[in-house]
């Protein structure tokens, strides 16, 4: 287990690089901005549609917040691979598992804290604009969705962090994940009930629906995303342990 000293050190590293801390802040800022923008303009019109799912719609902006979460996870790790900074880090903490555990714990904890605030914030603020269509946290599945949305954001940050340990570059990870989430998942994802349900973003977002359709439920969907993140972290840990720094 990483000691508090190493955790503190990792926190200093996160807060002292603008791109990393900025990405973390952007998770909240981008999500809130887009929530307000969409809820205030097209929110009620969209909700008027008979097929509309009010609960899932409330978390529409998480699609954008997750990009920031992925950037946060990727840049928090990639700063170690710029200019060989990793060598300095490993001379300070030569136990690589301890180093890895501290960094990943911090990314997970920061991602979860910001994710929960973002998810609840987006839901509560967005509903202020929904007029007669507004739902509260007491609505069926709402509390679960708001909480799960925060967990989902943290898991996407960890997924990106694991991949960055493996690929050693945020650019590489972002140029794989972002097109994947924006394009592949949207296109393939419409074919419901297929293997696409098990993609990390599709599966995890089931937690945001009132009723999950298909083979996965809300929690098992989130567990699938957690499994993706765990696999990426395991691969990253293995690469860090094995490679010369």
């Amino acid at each position: 287990m990483p000691g508090t000293a190493v955790l503190h050190s990792e926190w200093i590293k996160i807060r002292s690089v603008r791109s990393v801390f900025g990405s973390l802040a952007a998770v909240l800022l981008v999500t809130m901005a887009i929530t307000v923008l969409t809820a205030a303009t097209v929110g009620q019109a969209e909700a008027d549609d008979a097929d509309a799912e009010l609960l899932f719609g409330a978390f529409y902006a998480l699609n954008f917040g997750q990009i920031a979460a992925i950037s946060f996870g990727a840049t928090a790790v990639s700063t170690e691979y710029a200019n060989g900074a990793l060598r300095m880090s490993l001379t300070a903490v030569p136990d690589r598992t301890r180093f890895f555990a501290a960094k990943v714990s911090l990314i997970g904890a920061a991602g979860l804290a910001v994710g929960i605030v973002t998810s609840f914030g987006a839901f509560l603020v967005g509903q202020l604009f929904m007029g007669e269509y507004a739902i509260g946290l007491g609505a069926p599945g709402a509390l679960r969705a708001a909480f799960g949305g925060g967990v989902y954001l943290a898991l996407m940050a960890l997924f990106a962090a694991g991949l960055t340990f493996l690929l050693r570059s945020a650019v590489a990870v972002l140029s794989v994940l972002i097109p994947f989430i924006l394009i592949v998942s949207f296109v393939v994802g419409d074919v419901a009930g297929s293997a696409a349900d098990y993609l990390p973003d599709r599966a995890g977002q089931l937690i945001l629906h009132q009723h999950a359709e298909g083979s996965l439920g809300p929690w098992s969907g989130l567990a699938v995303t957690a499994a993706w993140a765990a696999a990426a972290l395991l691969a990253g840990w293995w690469a860090l342990k094995r490679r010369d720094a």
Binding site: V17, R18, T79, E80, N83, G84, M88
Partner: peptide, 14 residues
């Protein structure tokens, strides 16, 4: 080891 081995966006103190 390598004087470049530090993230350039950090302050020296951090």
């Amino acid at each position: 080891l390598d004087p470049q081995a530090a993230h350039a966006a950090r302050t020296a103190r951090d």
